[in-house]
Design a protein around this nucleic acid. Structure first.
Lengths: 226, 226
DNA sequence: GGTAAAACTTGATTTAAATCAAATTTTAGA
DNA sequence: TCTAAAATTTGATTTAAATCAAGTTTTACC
């Protein structure tokens, strides 16, 4: 199931008692981010947490040679940047908008307040963080044990889920080849070749940068994933 | 710093108010586990959480082909198995004692009780889980971007820290070659070759299964890690 | 303490994926 | 809309690491 690879903080807001939700909605401050604009950077101190109202955000780690490994792509309705606040550390990774996005900000002070006052909120956060923990563990297993082909197939399935739009029959995955390569832990040239094969096998179709999945069932098989 | 790769739930017990600590110590039930004995298994439902009094425990994920990727090695004083309880899921990985160990057990009921009653405990757990989350993120970056040689060097440094014994000048890392390979995300043959090279370069010495680090500084360089 | 089984090491070979290089296509700004 | 720059694709080659194979050593148990 794809939930093994997706966080689910979308539901935090829904599951919260209305008092807490209203408090949060009151104190959140919206800000627009343009495509490619950074939200926070590895090594800096957090000043609050973020809630993605609309758009998409990638979170990645950069290694010595400048190669980035994408850890996660956040979708509408997800909280992010809170684990560094909780562990009282500098950010361990960098977050960048990969589409024009609207992001709400909650200051550390406000965040700590609701954390202290609302046991439902802290309980939900614990539950959520535990799930996110398992997502990373699953990712570790995938990155270290699967072939590039399998990893690309799996990431297409994950993205298919993220780019799904309600009431739309077709899903268009739209992100750069290098972002897709950096999710799958490979290089763009290898990624291009794998996509070429998938097209040839009628698993996907492409239109410029856009990717559409034509045959989910077989792609699941290629991902060797169940 | 090596803390980027080590959890720190050792300190949970110390940082807890004495009431909470005493409660925990009262309700924990000790059990002995022999080397290679499983503690819990991927896919089963959690019935409580564990605290490692003495010994060492590996936690790993198995892939379709039976290859295991070790996610973490727990040391004395660490809690484990709690994230599945919190996320209300089956275990996402398997835990096995890699030495004879003494492990305390806390039932879900008791765990939820202290979680509900003690805000310090839940706050500490959140902090801790956030740190563990960052450890996995770091691991992802290492596994996907570093060479086998770098990964083996890094894992030796991590293990050096775990196998340290107070007041002892030398540290002996003692685990099977396949466990070490499964930490570094490689196969035993390749691991043996890398260790051979490290011995030749006077970075480590071995005595049977035991590994001693001779030159930490240079090993840090080889790990390309700072 | 001896011995069979398991674990480990070394060598030869293969292979998946990275790198290097050069077109071709797409994008975004003037 | 045009155009330069950026992104993508395809081809040729290299390389790091896996696999296959065969010893050698160590471990654990009777």
């Amino acid at each position: 199931m794809i939930t093994k690879f997706t966080f689910n903080s979308q539901f935090i807001l829904d599951e919260l008692p209305s008092d807490d939700r209203e408090f949060l909605e009151k104190i959140m401050v919206d800000k627009k981010y343009r495509k490619n604009q950074p939200i926070f950077t590895e090594g800096t101190l957090p000043s609050g947490i973020f809630y993605l109202q609309s758009g998409k955000v990638k979170k990645y780690k950069m290694d010595n040679d400048g190669r980035e490994q994408i850890i996660y792509i956040y979708n509408e309705g997800e909280f992010f940047g809170y684990s560094s606040v909780l562990s009282e550390n500098t950010y361990g990774d960098t977050a960048v908008a990969i589409e024009n996005s609207i992001i709400s900000f909650i200051t550390i002070k406000d965040f700590n307040e609701i954390l202290r006052d609302s046991s439902s909120f802290s309980r939900l956060l614990l539950k959520n963080l535990s799930h996110e923990f398992s997502v990373l563990a699953n990712l570790i297993a995938v990155l270290s044990q699967r072939t590039v082909r399998e990893r690309v197939a799996l990431n297409l399935l994950i993205l298919h889920d993220k780019y799904k739009v309600e009431d739309m029959k077709n899903t268009n995955i739209l992100l750069s080849r290098s972002d897709l390569a950096n999710m799958a832990g490979t290089v763009v040239e290898t990624l291009a070749r794998v996509l070429h094969d998938f097209k040839h096998d009628k698993l996907i179709s492409t239109d410029g940068r856009k990717i559409q999945i034509l045959n989910i069932e077989r792609l699941i098989q290629v991902a060797n994933f169940y």
